[in-house]
């Protein structure tokens, strides 16, 4: 089979199989995610969404098949793939500013430029006044904003988000969804966003990957071309919601 994925920008997943011990968690996943696309991985709990995201991040490795990012085989984590975790994963011993500066600092950016970077991204997530705070002085929503700023500040080409708003209350959640869309439009990074909420996927994604469990596999890929800004009460939102809901329920 000729390998024509070698130079394509974006993420190419080919026939991915992943086991935990003898347990087959993912089977036959093949998926192309284009550059600057916003993709949601949607499916019931336990269908392997986190596992797939972790494989793209390079935290775990498939049993068979492969993942290529911009034509390069994934062999471990890298700064070109930023990750936002459900449990925020901020470094509690660093201030907000130090957290955001951590990626660029490792990349060797000098002191003055570091401040400019963290100022820019904290401004982007509306937390400029919290630079000197420690994470445990912030609310859940604020922490996740910092985590997004931290991931973006390392200038990744791809942002991987694992149910980042799952632990937040509904109102905070919606406002962070709005912010994420605004950030995505401003920064144009590829986003792979894991959720088990149909509404969240319909609001955020251009492409919705519907997954099913046991073993985890792709059931449907649904394009969502609804224009932005999207409203959570529009007809197009509801019709897309129904379509995704049917794909999830489809028992065949």
């Amino acid at each position: 089979m000729p390998d024509n994925t070698a130079i394509r920008p974006g993420i190419a997943i080919r026939n991915l199989v992943l086991h935990y011990g003898v347990h087959e968690v993912l089977r036959g996943i093949s998926l192309d995610i284009a550059d600057a696309e916003f993709v949601c991985l949607l499916g019931p709990s336990g269908c392997g969404k986190t596992t797939l995201l972790n494989a793209i991040a390079g935290f775990i490795f498939p049993t068979a098949g492969g993942i290529a990012v911009n034509g390069h085989e994934v062999r471990g984590p890298g700064a070109e793939r930023g990750v936002v975790f459900q449990e925020y994963a901020l470094f509690p011993w660093f201030t907000v500013e130090q957290n955001v500066q951590y990626g660029p600092r490792l990349a060797g950016v000098d002191r003055k430029a570091l401040n400019a970077i963290s100022d820019h991204y904290l401004e982007l997530v509306g937390l400029s006044d919290f630079k000197r705070h420690y994470p445990n002085q912030l609310s859940g929503g604020q922490r996740q904003r910092v985590a997004i700023a931290r991931a973006l500040a390392a200038k990744p080409e791809i942002l991987l988000l694992d149910e980042p708003f799952g632990a937040l209350d509904a109102m905070t959640r919606e406002s962070l969804q709005d912010e994420l869309v605004r950030i995505w439009e401003a920064e144009r990074r590829t986003c792979v966003f894991v959720t088990h909420s149909i509404g969240e996927a319909v609001f955020l994604a251009e492409t919705i990957i519907v997954m099913q469990a046991q073993p985890g596999r792709i059931r449907a890929i649904i394009r969502n071309d609804a224009p932005r800004p999207r409203a959570r009460t529009s007809d197009s939102y509801f019709s897309m919601y129904r379509k995704v809901d049917e794909a999830l329920r489809d028992r065949t």
Partner: peptide, 23 residues
């Protein structure tokens, strides 16, 4: 999750030791 967060931000083993493990 802190180790993973650091690695995804570009941290190598010695960075992880200094900035995550020791901390």
């Amino acid at each position: 999750v802190h180790v993973r967060a650091a690695r995804a931000l570009g941290a190598k083993r010695h960075h992880i030791f200094r900035d995550v493990v020791l901390r």
